[in-house]
């Protein structure tokens, strides 16, 4: 059986400066040659990285919400970048997205019933009793009361809105969900509720997730596999437990150590990186992390490291893999 999702050499460039006749003079390399795969159904691949690393763009390109510049995306063995409109529509039933901000992801002028019913109407042409039953079942699935059905989004709290967004994403019984920072707009106590809901749904419905998050604790809690991105490229990937306990790449090490841990006994163990993420417009040749790397060598400046298997499915893109800080 082909893997559920396989991405090969995916690139997405955005034009930044244009000449007056419309040709682009430079490109922002948002996603620059990404390979990843989700083998088994019911598993979660976490994408971790800071703002501007291309993780959100990656999620959108995989769903073909943005056109790709180059590469291949196989969903259940079919390259979805080559599908025509009709075929893509059919595939989209199986792939849905949960957005970060539940305040802007819901149309404020229509009721929750209509929000959740919309995919059922457009894809399955349901109506009447059948539609109402399905909507009620979906709301129950995400832990919302059936009496909430005729309310508008503004009548809900952030956590309840995110439940509505999840109900809408589940409406067509997808196999695969892109979760783009699903809890970063929420409070801690509500975050726990939503993470538990997502895990529970995964266990019951066999969903696969691509979880995009800047919060490594959330990634660790949810993911089976993790990929760490920096400036449009994956610098390290492998089993979550392995990557988050023994990262090899100096960026992954610094990122992990910079996460503030709610324990005053762990102060002062973080690796503080100098400087900022360089611009993704015309990125540097050689290793992209070179300018901030605490263990850089001359070779890193000249030659870009490639993602290589360091054993046990732990892939890392670093010339000094394993000799880091």
């Amino acid at each position: 059986m082909p893997p559920l999702l396989e991405v090969r050499g995916l690139k997405k460039y955005f034009p930044v400066r244009r000449t007056w006749w419309g040709g682009a003079t430079s490109w922002l390399h948002a996603v620059d040659g990404v390979d990843l795969r989700i083998d088994a159904p019911g598993t979660t691949l976490g994408i971790a990285g800071e703002s501007g690393c291309g993780k959100t763009t990656l999620g959108r390109v995989i769903l073909r919400l943005l056109p790709a510049t180059a590469g291949e995306i196989y969903f259940e063995g079919r390259d979805i970048l080559k599908l025509n409109y009709q075929a893509l529509r059919a595939v989209r039933r199986d792939m849905q997205i949960v957005f970060q901000d539940p305040y802007s992801a819901l149309d404020p002028r229509i009721t929750v019933r209509d929000i959740v019913a919309e995919p059922l109407r457009t894809h399955l042409h349901l109506g009447g009793r059948e539609l109402d039953d399905q909507v009620a079942a979906l709301l129950a699935e995400v832990g919302l009361d059936a009496s909430h059905i005729y309310r508008f989004p503004h009548e809900f709290s952030g956590g309840q809105r995110q439940r509505v967004v999840i109900a809408r994403a589940l409406a067509l019984h997808p196999k695969f969900l892109v979760l783009d920072e699903p809890t970063s707009a929420l409070d801690v106590s509500v975050q726990a509720q939503i993470l538990n809901l997502l895990k529970d749904l995964q266990a019951r419905l066999g969903l696969s997730y691509l979880l995009i998050s800047h919060d490594l604790s959330v990634v660790e809690h949810m993911a089976d596999e993790v990929a760490v991105m920096y400036l449009g490229q994956i610098v390290e990937r492998g089993p979550a437990a392995e990557i988050l306990s023994h990262p090899w790449h100096p960026y992954a090490q610094a990122l992990l150590s910079a996460v503030p841990v709610p324990d005053p006994g762990q102060r002062g163990r973080e690796i503080v990186l100098e400087g900022n993420v360089p611009s993704a417009v015309d990125p540097p040749t050689g290793c992209r992390f070179y300018s901030r790397c605490p263990v850089r060598r001359p070779v890193c400046r000249e030659k870009a490291p490639v993602l290589a298997d360091g054993g046990g499915g732990h892939w890392v893109a670093c010339h000094l893999a394993g000799h880091g800080t």
């Binding site: 709290s157 106590s189 726990a192 993470l195 604790s217 660790e220 809690h221 988050l244 709610p262």
Partner: peptide
Amino acid sequence: AIPRLGQKRGTLPVIEGT
């Protein structure tokens, strides 16, 4: 209720309500 690095738990304890 906070997920913590280095201790994976099945479900997080939640505070019910808002």
